[in-house]
Design a protein around this nucleic acid. Structure first.
Lengths: 347, 347
DNA sequence: TTGAAAGCGCTAACAC
DNA sequence: GTGTTAGCGCTTTCAA
């Protein structure tokens, strides 16, 4: 197959210099109407496709942002990436996405690979990284934005929320609803580094203590992130071990829905026999019967604000940015909220 | 912030030429052990990060593949991208992912943007594209792989399955289970171009006709892709309009689950009063009670095979490849399958 | 095993 | 408004 046309080919065909062709493909430079018209026509005729690898190389700007998320198959991260992508696309910036499988070593590998491509910025999920990851990021000087959490020792900029505070709020809600013997269902604490599970668990324990309640009803089941099935299994285990439990907070909506399914199967009424809550405000939380009480961490907003940070830096902002996105409590039927007994009208 | 070190800096520090440094960073070229050792040490000391933008530019190979999927928030496409990424990463190839929102014009825009970055290959989802998209892809000569369907006029290579044939199989299953008045629930046919909904609908109609059954129980509700809520609403509508329907095939598992939820709410027993089926083998299909009868299009396999096609092309394969991935029917409790009345043991 | 020269396709900087 | 020159950081090619 023949070589793709270059600016030189277009320049020759249009009888101008390559510089003029270069100008024709940008909006900010001065060039006469006729010249541009002729050049674009010739370019089209020759099947010319602008080579941004050359442009990016010359300008030392790649026009993309490296984004690392724990998992592709997660509606919340997908929303964050969606918000980020939509906002960044306005300035023509693209997202180079990779996923770590909740593994900091995999993250380290991906960071060095991505940095070789010289992204204009790097977006990470969570505040947990290897020492080498931190070092190489600092060394290259590429702006770093950590998202989805507010680490105490951030690498650079942060856009997120406090998992602990959000969980605290959820516990307070359950307590306000009258529940006292509250359990937490998450992954086995020995697994799941890189996920938010340990932070939410800590938030649960702290909140229970501050409410003078027993914080020891902790179920660790399966590997983070928990699946629906894990949630079902964990609930069965919990009911066997601690049958007098009044309410269960699950680390995620998916596991909470699994728990709800298991309750249905066992004939345990939610919320009358046991209350439930999840985390994440996934679609399932609003469709299940009853709807799930949950926390909406506003993932799309996180992505949007991250894009705004990147824009600000591009425009020359100096100094470290720290943006807090406030999660929202959604009271559903699973914790006895009257309007949450079913999302659809009537019955 | 100081300029990042280049090969020249490393070469100077190590007392060799840049060419030797270049060789030190690759495995296939000849260089003495001592030279490599010294170079890598100096590179590390200087905080050198290999610049693959320059390398890619010079070699006219970018080492990434452009991938367009309809939506980020879809477990099936996520699985395909996962299979693709995992397999491609073995050869150091990265995936530049973008999503079209099921919009062929958006796809056209993204294709021209991505092509400017000179990907080594382009992976598209579905066989529906604008004329301009087809032209520009053919013009650049970059290998194209269309996935998730087997279009009659492919642009280049294909890895997928026949939505029509898969739906046919699902209808046959329902007929074999004894259902006759079978309805199809999909999106409003006037919406949703770019989704597989029309193909599945056609497969339904053909299969019903071949079984000498009435193919006119077609519900078009909402925009493709259908949400859980759409499925619930569509089912309520269906029961009102065609109350004697015996079975419902939904375009997706999410809408089928919404329909199941609505059945529960209305006191309609599944499968005793009405049978249900979905499409996609999403997690929810295996956790709902009863489990959902569905089609597993094996999305991860699609991604894996796509990566193998890209590898084959890289190794010099000539000619058009067409890989068919065979979907699997999963009989669940929602169509009366005895082992599907609940995924968890006992009761 | 190592080095020198040339250049990938574009654009910053300057000249006209 | 347009052209000339130089070079971004690598790697191909050829020579030593």
């Amino acid at each position: 197959m023949a070589r793709l046309a270059t600016m030189r080919d277009v320049a020759k065909a249009a009888g101008v210099s390559t510089m003029t062709v270069s100008r024709a493909f940008r909006s900010d430079t001065s060039i006469s109407k006729e010249a541009r018209k002729k050049i674009l026509r010739e370019a089209d005729r020759l099947g010319y496709v602008f080579d941004s690898t050359a442009s990016n190389f010359r300008r030392q700007k790649t026009g993309f942002v490296g984004v690392l998320i724990p998992s592709l198959n997660n509606a919340s991260f997908a929303d964050t990436v969606g918000g980020l992508t939509d906002e960044l696309s306005k300035s023509g910036t693209q997202v180079l996405l990779a996923y770590t499988n909740y593994d900091v070593d995999q993250e380290e590998l991906l960071i060095s690979q991505l940095l070789q491509r010289r992204p204009d910025a790097m977006v990470l999920t969570g505040g947990q990284h290897t020492e080498k990851s931190r070092n190489v990021l600092l060394k290259t000087g590429i702006p770093v934005i950590e998202t989805w959490d507010l680490p105490s020792e951030p690498i650079g900029h942060t856009v997120g929320f406090s998992n602990e505070a959000a969980m605290h709020r959820l516990v307070d809600h359950m307590v306000a609803k009258g529940y006292r013997r509250i359990a937490y269902v998450g992954g086995d604490p020995k697994t799941g580094p890189g996920s938010a599970d340990p932070l939410r668990r800590r938030g649960f324990v702290n909140a229970m203590q501050q409410n003078d309640l027993d914080p020891s009803r902790l179920i660790g089941w399966g590997r983070s992130p928990l699946s629906m099935r894990d949630g079902a299994d964990a609930l069965a285990h919990l009911l066997e071990k601690l049958p007098d439990t009044e309410a269960v907070i699950c680390v995620s909506d998916l596991s909470a829905f699994g728990a709800l399914t298991e309750c249905n199967r066992l004939g345990v009424k939610v919320p009358d026999d046991i209350a439930l809550a999840g985390f994440g405000a996934h679609e399932i939380a609003g469709v299940s019967v009853p709807t799930l009480t949950t926390i909406d961490p506003r993932p799309r907003q996180i992505g949007f604000e991250t894009a705004r940070v990147i824009e600000a830096l591009r425009l020359g902002h100096e100094g470290i940015l720290r943006i807090e996105v406030t999660p929202e409590l959604i009271a559903g039927g699973s914790s006895g909220h009257p309007q949450g007994s079913g999302v659809l009208p009537g019955r």
